[in-house]
Design a protein around this nucleic acid. Structure first.
Length: 585
RNA sequence: GGGCCCAUAGCUCAGUUGGAUAGAGCACGGGAUUUCUAAUCCCGCGGUCGCAGGUUCGAAUCCUGCUGGGCUCGCCA
């Protein structure tokens, strides 16, 4: 149920009727018309700019077109009044019955409230996290993980067929470094004193158990062996151990990917890069050439050299991009290109990647690659996440990457809990810097949006606990509430709350469309605020309380409303991956 | 220097894809409690939407140019 969508359809019907009556010309386009709640509630429940949009094509004044539309809409049984305002807005006020029926709809839908088919089951691939398999996840990975996961849930809720995917960057030099670091830990496990870890190797203690496991498995046979005898074995083992670590970390945050694609085994090893490049060669999009130095900034060691290049400039990029390193192996980009082709071949026509802001300069070339390889049939979007500043009581938390002494994702999750981490990560638009303050996010007050929203949910439960005490044995199940007498929802604030709830499906579609899950968090804050307001009115005026001791029917009616709020809050939190609180004492 | 992102109240930020008088929270001032958990709520104060042009019925939102900040710039992933 989405009143805004319903009335967009009603506009369409009205327009057709007016065309049939010869009052408006055929072929007018309503796609730019929106039905939305007016900023100022005194203007009505719904507002549309349809007349303003249609006026030009109709060759009429906006207010005249508005008059025609009002004539049609005013006879709709749901409409109490329709009038024209300003330059030609049509404002509608709906009968209270529309809002009351919403309660029943929400109760019947339960957790499914807000779902829509806007996505039309189109297959979408959301790739996020994709942290390098060289160690546990650090706090910087949190945001991308949460944003990607929430976005995936949002797209699912709005009717897309979503796959959550992780790309394992296990083909480059860094996994060789990982293998060498592990070899050192292996020698250590065999009793050798390895001293300090040399510069250039990974120093973190998380590799100690990996070395031990290898020592147990292989004994001393690789202790003094040349590197080429053990490198591949150690690398495979280490990568797998690191991915186990990462999966555990993600699990602690409640993030689960359905597909893990390995650059080494699934892309490079399967010859996918060669295939992708062949595909481009057929269309003359690959050549050997010499790049110009970057404009206005020539690196010191610049020397012209011929390289295998992709004609990215034909697809909107600034320069053509190298595909092969001088040692003959593929560049990261070449493999990434093949990987995105692989996604397209698996049936995805909408590819979304969540990246850190430091990769912004990489967007154009991947976009060019997707355009070229899918021949324009797939869309590629990147959601860039800005940095998170870890703070405590307003002071930055010090981190030293060099010693391997960074704050891990696990540290943060263990400290404040996954629910808090997830919600806070979504309290800013993703392309804005975000401060994550340990002290602040644990604060239990309205200053902390996590608790404010959680408290609203807990309070709705509290009203039910109260009702159960007041009316022992009474049936306040969702089914019983759906049968309540909704006519008794009469207070203006109660109806206003319902209007707000009616905006949920519309909000989700807009957020999914924009790829901005943070909007859900902000919307929930506003809903919580409206609910707290109504609750407080009950504190001041006993007649407005949800539980009315001498009127069980009225209590049932009001609990139906309260339940609709609770269902909506829980549904919204569900998209963010946050568990709603039952009580907060 | 090239490219990308950002700039909204004293502070931290939203702004429904171009709509009507730009909104929250914090801070500051005042008020509500024998409570369905006051972990809450109400009132007030606070704005040249970085600057200058342009597009149109209408711009914080789109375009151009400035100013200031961040990220990035041929085989690191």
């Amino acid at each position: 149920m989405n009143v805004f969508a319903d009335f967009h359809a009603a506009l369409s019907t009205a327009l057709s009727a007016l065309v049939a009556e010869g009052k408006l010309p055929d072929g007018l386009d309503l796609s730019r018309a929106v039905v939305e709640p007016p900023r100022d509630p005194s203007h009505g429940d719904l507002s549309t700019n349809a007349a303003l949009v249609l006026a030009k094509g109709a060759g009429a004044k906006p207010r005249d077109v508005a008059m025609l539309l009002v004539g049609k809409l005013a006879v709709d049984p749901r409409v109490e009044s329709a009038d024209i305002a300003g330059p030609g807005f049509v404002n509608l006020r709906l009968r209270a019955g529309v809002w009351r029926e919403l309660v029943r709809a929400v109760l019947n839908l339960g957790a499914a409230y807000g779902e829509s088919r806007a996505g039309n089951a189109r297959p979408v691939n959301v790739e996020y996290v994709s942290a390098n398999p060289t160690g546990p996840m650090h706090v910087g990975h949190c945001r991308g993980a949460v944003v990607g996961d929430a976005l995936a849930a949002l797209l699912e809720k709005t009717g897309f067929s979503v796959t959550r995917e992780y790309y394992i960057n296990d083909a480059g030099a860094q996994v060789d470094t990982l293998a060498r670091s592990v070899h050192l830990r292996y020698r250590e496990a065999l009793g050798e004193n390895i001293g300090t870890i040399p510069e250039g190797l990974y120093p973190g203690a998380y590799l100690v158990p990996v070395g031990k496991a290898l020592a147990q498995q292989h004994g001393g046979k690789f202790r003094d062996a040349p590197e080429d005898e053990w490198l591949a074995t150690f690398r495979e083992f280490a990568i797998s151990a690191m991915m186990d670590l990462i999966r555990e970390d993600l699990d602690a945050l409640g993030v689960r990917h359905q597909v893990f694609t390995s650059e080494r085994t699934n892309i490079v090893g399967q010859g996918r890069v060669d295939e992708a490049i062949e595909r481009l060669k057929l269309r003359d999009l690959v050549y050997t050439g010499v790049l110009e130095p970057p404009k206005g900034m020539k690196p010191d060691d610049w020397e012209p050299r011929p390289q295998l290049l992709f004609r990215a400039t034909q697809f909107g990029d600034d320069v053509d991009r190298p595909l092969r390193k001088s040692d003959g192996s593929w560049t990261y980009f070449a493999a990434d290109m093949a990987y995105h082709l692989d996604k397209y071949r698996r049936g995805f026509v909408r590819l979304i990647d969540i990246w850190g802001a430091d990769h912004g300069g990489y967007i154009k070339r991947v976009d060019a690659a997707v355009k070229a390889l899918s021949e324009g049939r797939a869309t590629f979007e990147v959601k860039l996440c800005q940095m998170v500043n870890l703070m405590d009581r307003g002071e930055p938390v010090k981190m030293s990457k060099r010693s391997g002494n960074f704050v891990t994702l696990r540290d943060v999750v263990d400290e404040v809990g996954a629910d808090v981490v997830r919600f806070v990560m979504l309290t800013r638009k993703q392309d804005q810097h975000l401060d994550f303050d340990y002290a602040k996010v644990r604060e239990q007050s309205k200053d902390n949006p996590v608790f404010y929203v959680q408290y609203a949910h807990a309070r709705h439960r509290s009203a039910f606990r109260q009702a159960a005490q007041t009316f022992p044995g009474a049936d306040f199940s969702d089914a019983a509430l759906a049968a309540a007498d909704l006519e008794r929802i009469a207070d203006a604030d109660e109806l206003a709350l319902l209007r707000q709830i009616s905006g949920f499906p519309r909000l989700l579609e807009a957020a999914a469309d924009a790829g901005e899950p943070h909007r859900v968090a902000f919307w929930l804050y506003d809903l919580a605020s409206a609910f707290h307001q109504l609750w407080t009115r009950g504190n001041h005026d006993a007649a407005l309380r949800f539980v009315v001791p001498d009127d069980q029917d009225l209590t049932r009616t009001r609990l139906a409303l309260v339940r609709a709020v609770g269902i909506t809050v829980a549904a919204g939190l569900g998209i963010l991956g946050v568990r709603p609180a039952e009580e907060m004492r």
